[in-house]
Design a binder for these strands. Structure first.
Lengths: 352, 352
DNA sequence: TTTGGTTGCTAAATCGTATTAGCAGTGCGA
DNA sequence: TCGCACTGCTAATACGATTTAGCAACCAAA
């Protein structure tokens, strides 16, 4: 059995003062309330001797703020990325002396409801509602019981919540520029989405926005996309198949793969055909999955800034909490976090 | 501004009874305390009408239990595996109606201290202290302030805490048996640790135990290990180098790679030498990293049961909490979670 | 008529802190 | 001598629940 925790009353008794005085001193309001130096020292010493730490539950009940936030995501495990997002949030939270509850909804609205309620029951100061891949979501109404932020997600219907997202359009531009700057103008194929803007899978935001950025830069440079293949799922085997299918009608000069797992499949297909990266075919991709640095040659890719997304979400959430407290009502903002290029070894000028 | 939460007092007033009665009814003790059917119904209806939910902070203060546990790990992001471990813990916690705090120590003892304190300040019912790869750890003394479990870790000094670990020795046996059953008796090389028991890197537990299991089964079958290479770090590039080095002195028949990332590097080295898996060389590995299913041919590997480890840790923690409450003192147990074989395409009988 | 047991409910204390309101004691000016 | 301001502290209350102790009303038995 653990020994009883030291309470404020214990400190007060040890210092020979009332709990009120002890509380005042320990919350730094001693000066303001004209507590004498001598008493202040006695309290401080007692607190230190007894190793006093305020009971956060009690403080939470009294003040209504718990220095706790909730991180709710659809799924944490599927994507590696998740880890870094949580890590970013965790470190930002730690910097503010705040703890993180986490919960997973698995996309189940009922679970979602229960989870949000459970968090509000515990008086969280705010909630980060995260999607593990960028997409539009239905904002659950339970979330409006307090400050909240959408992470990696956009509200499907108009909402008062701010969002934090990777800047996918600019990422698309970056990928396209990498090829242009290497001198590529012909034989550029897309793997993951078709060449046209409407050839994108499911409700994901990334596909559309990356494609938009790519098309913008290439069009501006007067370069035409040679072809593209949509992938039902962005997994290696689909990348493998899509690339094989492109190889049937000739050898491309460059591939823009819509994520690294697809690129992994593309490497396999190119290797089957005796083609070398980057001498025969340049490859650029998105995400910066750990895989990208393991592949040979190492994959040039535009990174999803998961860690930064997590941090940013906490920052934005605290701004929201501030607004709530002060009763300010503002237009919900959309925050875009830059996606940095990781230049590695899979892009080279096209063969003369 | 969010409307004030409904409290027990609101419910009591609406039902025209005292808070005591309302509390009794809602906690199911109405029968026992001889509350009439009629009053019971009134309270239930009022609670339902008002959508009453008890304030968990208040309950926590009053009862001392918060239905909250802490999950503290050295690092969540580095290893993919982490995600699944947390997921397992999360789901087990959800089944029990408990929320999870998470925190990362980054191996920093000072952070560790602060984190554990912050959790105890919030009156967590118990703590799971996890390492992201199996190893021995120094148990921080702050953890003893309440029930706790070690996950994926063994205490370096004797401790009262139970541990939950993957059964690495049996996993080693499994890997060895896979090769034996395929008919391999010669040319079996190890990648990751040297052939002798002492050729293992750093303080990891996995290396020693896997090797122990492997040696036990092979020795028993009268099979000698042909060779082995220790890897300073279990990353693809080290696997690549180690395998190259083995290939300099001949072609092995089978490789036991000590994890999938190493196996990934080994595949690259074999491919450089024009050797095919599994026709020329069989490969068996450990971990079941997502990568393993993407490699061609798909990698046969002995899986780390991360999800199950997470779940088990919660189960064991709750048993601990029970013991603490009832004042029972028991010997700390070590719980081993089986590592299942994932038979895929990288093992075949040796060429005749 | 008193005693005693049941029934059906409520008052009050408690958990550990923050905070508002107020209370003694001193000094000073009128 | 009274009133007033200031100093330095404390009593009391509130946060929202749980739980112990007890109260009023009624009936049955002695």
């Amino acid at each position: 059995m653990s020994p009883r925790r030291v309470t404020l009353a214990d400190v007060a008794k040890a210092a020979g003062v009332s709990p009120t005085t002890a509380s005042l001193v320990l919350s730094g309001r001693g000066r303001e309330m004209r507590i004498s130096q001598e008493v202040e020292q006695r309290v401080l010493k007692a607190a230190d001797d007894l190793q006093y730490r305020p009971n956060a539950v009690s403080v939470g009940l009294r003040t209504g703020t718990t220095r706790t936030i909730g991180f709710v995501s659809d799924t944490v495990a599927t994507s590696r990325l998740a880890g870094d997002m949580i890590k970013g949030a965790l470190e930002a939270a730690r910097d503010r002396g705040v703890m993180l509850f986490i919960g997973e909804t698995e996309g189940d609205p009922e679970l979602e409801r229960r989870l949000l309620q459970a968090m509000h029951d515990r008086q969280v100061d705010g909630i980060i509602f995260a999607a593990m891949f960028t997409r539009t979501i239905k904002v659950p109404k339970e979330i409006t019981a307090g400050p909240a932020v959408l992470l990696n997600a956009l509200p499907r219907q108009p909402s008062t919540l701010p969002s934090v997202l990777p800047d996918e359009i600019e990422a698309g531009r970056t990928a396209a520029r990498v090829l242009l700057e290497a001198g590529h103008r012909d034989g550029i194929h897309l793997i993951g989405v078709g060449p046209r803007l409407r050839d994108v899978p499911h409700g994901g935001v990334a596909a559309v926005e990356r494609l938009t950025g790519i098309r913008e830069v290439l069009t501006e440079a007067g370069v035409k996309i040679a072809g593209g293949r949509r992938c039902a799922d962005w997994q290696p085997e689909y990348g493998l198949d899509a690339t094989r299918s492109i190889l049937e009608s000739g050898v491309p000069r460059a591939l823009i793969c819509f994520n690294d797992r697809i690129a992994f499949g593309a490497y396999q297909a190119l290797s089957e055909h005796g083609l070398r990266v980057p001498e025969d075919v340049s490859v650029v991709s998105f995400d910066d999955h750990p895989l990208a640095a393991w592949m040979r040659p190492k994959l040039t890719t535009v990174a999803l800034p998961h860690y930064e997304l997590g941090r940013k979400a906490v920052d934005v959430l605290f701004a929201e909490i501030g607004h709530h407290r002060s009763g300010v009502v503002r237009e919900p903002e959309i925050h875009r976090v830059p996606m940095p290029l990781r230049p590695r070894d899979s892009v080279t000028p096209p063969p003369a």
